[in-house]
């Protein structure tokens, strides 16, 4: 089984705070890999390091085409890695469709010249993009909300918009930062089935999430972080029985 991402010895400090401390793991291709841990454990910082938003102090991140650390932030998406942010970062004043279209930017020349001289290839690309966006919006049940302004939408719609934006870039690896935050139970169920379907189609997913029931039922592997350190890595079953995890995070079994 090949790994889509190999992370070794990754560390990041902010001033005196060690956000990520010598963390190593592999993300197996085609699996759902979850990262859990208390607030401030370094989960989101880890995503920032993987997508080159932050520069690690030490460590290495190897993707399919070599070290990611050689790439600028805006090239990560072209290597098939797409992410969402905690609380769904979107262009608040734009419509759902225009937000999702951001995911297609990597397929389009965003050269100034191609904007000014609408060549045939520009028009073909535009037409292709329109049909693909419509398909994607329909798939995530966003079609009827396509023209609504995202700032006025519900948490679920915003999360789906963020996920659709990521999917529009046709990623091999999807990083989701707390996609279920603020959702009610049947919305969580709906989102879980969306993620399962995407995974069945071959998409590798890394999930940061606090909803333990969702994490344990979706994931193939779970990694637990605490104060920036990896304290456990294994299948959901192994993690739920791990004594150090129970002490540091899961605590009383009511969260499971």
């Amino acid at each position: 089984m090949s790994n889509i991402l190999t992370v070794s010895g990754l560390s990041k400090t902010f001033g005196g705070l060690i956000a990520v401390n010598d963390v190593s793991f592999n993300i197996p291709r085609g699996k759902i890999f979850s990262i859990i841990g208390p607030n401030g454990a370094g989960k989101s910082t880890l995503f920032d390091l993987l997508t080159r938003v932050q520069e690690p102090d030490t460590g290495e991140i190897m993707g399919d085409s070599g070290s990611l650390l050689k790439l600028p932030t805006h090239d990560i998406i072209r290597h098939g890695i797409a992410r969402t942010f905690q609380h769904a970062q979107l262009i608040e004043t734009a419509s759902v469709r225009d937000n999702v279209a951001l995911g297609r930017l990597k397929f389009r020349s965003n050269q100034l010249s191609s904007a000014l001289f609408r060549t045939k290839s520009f028009r073909t690309a535009q037409a292709l993009e329109d049909t693909q966006l419509n398909e994607l919006l329909a798939r995530l049940n966003l079609a009827e909300h396509a023209d609504t302004v995202v700032s006025k939408n519900s948490t679920l719609l915003r999360q789906l918009t963020a996920i659709a934006m990521a999917l529009a870039s046709e990623p091999n690896l999807l990083l989701l930062d707390e996609p279920m935050g603020g959702l009610i139970e049947n919305e969580v169920q709906g989102l879980m089935s969306v993620l399962r379907k995407l995974n069945n189609e071959g998409l590798t997913i890394v999930l940061i999430e606090h909803r333990m029931s969702a994490v344990m039922s979706l994931s193939d592997y779970v990694m637990v972080l605490n104060f920036g350190r990896r304290i456990a890595l294994g299948t959901p079953n192994e993690i739920q029985r791990d004594q150090s995890v129970i002490e540091a995070y899961l605590g009383a079994s009511d969260v499971i």
Binding site: D75, L105, L112
Partner: peptide
Amino acid sequence: KSPFGRALLCIQRNELLGAVYGVNI
């Protein structure tokens, strides 16, 4: 009305999101 315009919108509203989605800010 072009991808370049979308990139401009990212610069106005959310540079981080733009960068992660491939805009060379």
